[in-house]
């Protein structure tokens, strides 16, 4: 059990690092997906630990939420690229301070 949780924490950390370090907007979105996946893994692990269905049901709904967030994120990236030419966070320079 603790091994699974360690896996979840590790994935979460790696994903968070990806969001913070990478400048490619698409990669940042993918890293967020990794973080959400880590959270879903934790839900399933705890569900197993308690022998109840709750965690799994929450996980199923969370998967749907993750997918919806990606859709909006990708739409925004497309709109952004249309305006600025590349999916790059360094091209975000209109808003300062």
């Amino acid at each position: 059990m603790s091994g699974y949780l360690a896996l979840s924490l590790a994935l979460f950390s790696i994903g968070a690092l990806g969001v913070v370090l990478r400048r490619n907007l698409l990669v940042m979105l993918i890293s967020i997906e990794v973080m959400l996946n880590a959270a879903i893994l934790a839900l399933v692990v705890f569900s197993r630990m308690y022998g109840s269905v709750d965690g799994r049901v929450m996980g199923i709904l969370a998967i749907a939420v993750a997918a919806g967030e990606v859709a909006v994120g990708l739409a925004l990236v497309i709109a952004f690229v249309r305006l600025r030419g590349r999916p790059d966070a360094t091209a975000m320079d209109l808003l300062k301070w």
């Binding site: 400048r23 490619n24 698409l26 990606v70 859709a71 497309i78 999916p87 790059d88 360094t90």
Partner: peptide, 27 residues
């Protein structure tokens, strides 16, 4: 999700400039 990502990655690459390769900006 993965198909959507692939779709957008390929879509943004359509003009042949490999738009995303310029993104190794300063960390």
């Amino acid at each position: 999700v993965v198909v959507l990502f692939l779709f957008v990655v390929m879509l943004l690459d359509l003009d042949g400039s490999r738009a995303e390769s310029s993104s190794r900006g300063p960390v």
